[in-house]
């Protein structure tokens, strides 16, 4: 049993509930025990770093200081939280005398996608495949902060990342090339400047359709929410709706490994993924 600390972050307790549920399920199939950080608080997300440097560092560092009480690595599924944690890590290492943060930089901070794309995990997944995702055409949507900036993420091929592609290939899906892997969806501007997020979503959905994808796969809660919920009001250039499901990579791992709760996760999406998956004989 691999023991790992877990920081779900706020959205996994709300709009990204199926991400949380599928991570917990997949972890248990892979014999990973998740220990949710006791008394975790919000990392400050984008609002703290847009407001004050010290505040942003302190809010995120509080959680890392809790994680630092054990020597387990820390699994972080939300990209925004992950980014803020890596910023604090940089600060802790570059300015150890900074008194506003109580974290010393000793935790191995792991973003969920990177964590599940490790070579040994991919090998294990191969041996556990129950239902290969044969015939499912997917585009990988990494988004921004999963790969950028590479000084924090250590992702070398940040303009054309490959790790999620490799994961989905292991699961048996057909991964399609497209040029929008790391383009921004507008993130939290969805609340304040919905018009801009609609425009960016429109482009991403159009390009995924042009690539002839059956679904978009992501590991970012903001990307998933923006693309999944904003399709209703958007039209394809060719007319009609996009109807393009946006799935978390963990949902697809769960599906390929035959987890019993897959349908429950899929039922939480606004753009229904079941129809496409049923047509492929996958649910």
């Amino acid at each position: 049993m691999r023991e790992v600390s877990y920081y779900p972050g706020c959205s996994l307790h709300g709009t990204a509930r199926e991400y949380d549920e599928s991570i917990q399920a997949v972890a248990s199939l892979l014999h990973i025990r998740l220990h949710e950080l006791e008394n975790w608080t919000c990392c400050g997300a984008s609002s703290a770093h847009c407001t004050d440097e010290a505040l942003a560092l302190a809010l995120a560092a509080r959680n890392l200081a809790i994680a630092e009480r054990s020597d387990r690595e820390l699994l972080v599924p939300c990209v925004a939280c992950y980014h803020r944690f890596k910023v604090v890590e940089r600060e802790a290492k570059e300015h150890p005398q900074n008194r506003t943060i109580l974290y010393r930089g000793n935790v191995s901070i792991r973003y969920a996608l990177d964590f599940f794309c490790e070579g040994s995990t991919l090998e294990e997944l191969k041996t556990k495949l129950v239902k290969p995702l044969t015939g499912l055409k997917a585009v990988c949507y990494y988004g921004c902060l999963t790969v950028r900036p590479p000084k924090l993420t250590s992702i070398e091929d940040y303009e054309n990342p490959q790790h999620m592609d490799r994961l989905l290939e292991v699961l048996g899906a057909e991964v399609l090339p497209w040029s929008y892997k790391t383009d921004c969806c507008g993130a939290s501007l969805v609340v304040t400047r919905t018009d801009l997020v609609r425009k960016l979503s429109q482009r991403l959905l159009s390009m995924a359709r042009e690539a002839e994808a059956d679904c978009i796969v992501t590991g970012c809660t903001m990307c998933q929410a923006n693309l999944d919920t904003r399709q209703e009001g958007l039209k394809r250039d060719a007319g009609g709706k996009f109807n393009l499901p946006v799935l978390y990579f963990t949902e697809l791992i769960g599906l390929a490994l035959g987890h019993k709760d897959v349908k429950k996760w899929l039922s939480r999406h606004i753009t229904d993924p079941v129809r496409v998956l049923r047509a492929k004989g996958l649910v």
């Binding site: 706020c10 959205s11 307790h13 709300g14 709009t15 975790w40 608080t41 919000c42 400050g44 997300a45 984008s46 609002s47 703290a48 847009c50 407001t51 505040l55 809010l59 939290s188 501007l189 609340v191 304040t192 400047r193």
Partner: peptide
Amino acid sequence: GEKDIPVFHSVFLDEIKSRGRIHELSLI
């Protein structure tokens, strides 16, 4: 230059201050 975006950030931070975490419904 943008009216609502800084308001959103300040409401977001108030939410953390009072609850420790973001409760999406209250925030909105």
